[in-house]
Amino acid sequence: MAVTSPPGSATLSPAPLAGSATRWSSFRRRLTIWISGSVVALLVITCYLGPFVLPIPSPVGGNVLDSGLSPGSPGHPLGTDVNGNDVLSRLIHGGRSSLTVGVVVNIIGLAIGGTVGAISAYLGGRADSIIMRALDVLIAFPSLVLVIVLAQILGPSLPNTILALSAFSIPAVARISRAATLKVMSMPYLQAAELSGSPWWRILSRHVVPNIVPQLTTFAMLGMAIVVVTEGALSFLGLGIPPPRPSWGNMIFEAQQSMSATPLLVLWPSIALLVTVLSFNLLGESIRDEVTGR
């Protein structure tokens, strides 16, 4: 077509100019990644190293005589709850439970769901439709409903919470992984690789995996937020992490019962949940925008 433009000429058409991000917005996006990333890092460090490094009391076994201390009391910067346990300590230990559940569920989801989705798309045909039908069944269940029933069947405990939450993480990741793989499979370079006789494992490892991993990792960031919230809901309903072991969800539930007297006890874990979810959402969204170059 290009009679008048020499081959290999770098074209500068006005179209990309129109939709492109300005320097300021790309700077702001980087800033968002750095800030939300730092908050996530800070959360992880505080929750996992805090108990060993910070001078905080045990999150359980508090004295009832110390119950309901207000924030700023000596030794209890955020006060104590109805059982006399230190709120800050419970927040940190609760965060550890939430993050552990989030990370493990997402790893399980990515490993199993990601593989199933990619293989399903790669195989195509009958195998693909059988796998997708099976996932359709799981996805038909509203996630929280399925998780509640599974959690009750398995019984409340940290590992069981992880198992129950994986039941909705795996099919969700599988769908995304399948869609991403299908997209890659339709690319001309992949067809070229197939035509040139590359073996299937080479196509998968060289072409498919590197192209779907960025999409899956950004989804995992958003998935962290979803899992942390669902874990909170489950523990709030008494089906997740069982007391006395703290979790933000069961802290909110306990605090809810004396909400009118001590509203702060509801607020602390709520704020912790909000900050965690917000920073994972921001991190996921801005990384996604960065990757897709919007």
Partner: peptide, 17 residues
């Protein structure tokens, strides 16, 4: 973005408060 980060059960409690 901020309100999206508030889970609905937390939103419920905050509204009640």
């Amino acid at each position: 973005m901020t309100l999206l980060a508030v889970p609905n059960f937390v939103m419920a409690l905050l509204l009640v408060l």
